[in-house]
Amino acid sequence: MSTSRLLLIIEDDEAFARTLTRSFERRGYQVLVAPGYDEASTLLETHSPDYAVVDLKLKGNTSGLACVQLLHQHDSEMQIVVLTGFASIATAVEAVKLGACQYLAKPSNTDDIEAAFGHVAGNTELEVTNRSTSIKTLEWEHIHAVLAETDFNISEAARRLGMHRRTLARKLEKQRVK
């Protein structure tokens, strides 16, 4: 790999973005940081990153999925890794459809992310398990899918799920969505 690798980090948590930046700079990357969609769009006007790390849930009801789509439209060869504190099958599938090469659950470190950049091709040797999904997991995935559809608007998601807003808020608090 060349020493002029340009990485864009789209992360609204300043401390985590700083930590990732330092770690990737030590590995020879040139790093740009954007806290959201608009800032990333502005950076893309003057830069063409080779790699991107995108947080799935950004402040201001912005989904990282919109950022993935923006990045992929800018350069379809860009290696995009999505990080999330609340992984679900629905958002993983959407992230890959929109152009992400990998989807990692937090906590993930620089080693995990860099390995994801290098592991773009699928693996046919991956073991398929016979473990069934629990009701709680299915419920959480459904809730998360509806939240993603509503751009993380809790009131609208609760309405679509047929539950009271406070009930949904309590469920989300138990899951510690970040």
Rank of each mutant, 00 (worst) to 15 (best):
C101V: 15
L104S: 08
G99Q: 10
A40T: 12
R159D: 14
I89P: 01
I135G: 00
S108G: 05
T84A: 03
V93Y: 02
A158G: 03
G36C: 09
I113H: 00
K136Q: 15
M78P: 04
S48F: 07
S41M: 15
C67M: 06
S76G: 14
S132Q: 11
I80K: 07
Q102M: 02
A92P: 05
F152K: 08
A157T: 08
W140D: 07
A157E: 14
G99K: 06
V81P: 09
Q69A: 14
P49R: 05
K106I: 11
D38C: 03
D111Q: 00
P107Q: 08
Y37E: 15
Q73V: 05
H144M: 11
A145V: 05
K97A: 14
I113G: 01
C101Y: 02
I135E: 13
W140M: 07
A100W: 02
K57M: 14
Q69H: 15
T84V: 03
D151V: 02
S108R: 00
K97M: 13
S88L: 09
P35T: 09
S132M: 08
C101N: 12
A52Q: 04
G36M: 07
S134A: 11
V33T: 12
T129S: 13
Y103E: 02
G122L: 12
L70F: 14
L70C: 14
A115M: 08
A34H: 11
S134M: 08
V128F: 04
D75K: 11
G118L: 08
L126D: 07
F117K: 03
K97C: 12
V53L: 09
Q73K: 13
A34K: 05
V33Y: 01
K57Y: 08
A66D: 14
L83K: 10
L65P: 04
E125Y: 08
A66Y: 07
V33H: 04
G99C: 05
T133H: 00
A157H: 05
A148W: 07
H119A: 14
N61C: 09
K97S: 15
T42H: 06
A115V: 03
L65H: 03
I89A: 06
T129L: 11
E156C: 05
S41H: 12
N109D: 15
L147I: 01
S108M: 05
Y37W: 13
E141S: 04
S48H: 14
V146K: 01
E141W: 06
V82W: 03
T110P: 06
Q79P: 01
L32C: 12
H47Q: 15
L32H: 12
Y37K: 11
V128K: 13
L147N: 04
L32S: 11
E125L: 12
L104I: 10
L65W: 01
H72P: 07
E156K: 13
V81W: 09
W140N: 11
S88M: 05
V120F: 06
A105D: 06
S76P: 12
L71E: 10
A100P: 00
W140I: 04
H74R: 10
A121C: 01
L83C: 12
K57P: 01
A121N: 01
H142E: 00
K59P: 03
R131A: 11
K59V: 06
R159Y: 10
A116I: 09
L98T: 03
E114Q: 02
I143P: 00
M78V: 10
S41A: 15
E114I: 00
L83Y: 11
E94Q: 11
F86G: 09
V81R: 04
L70T: 15
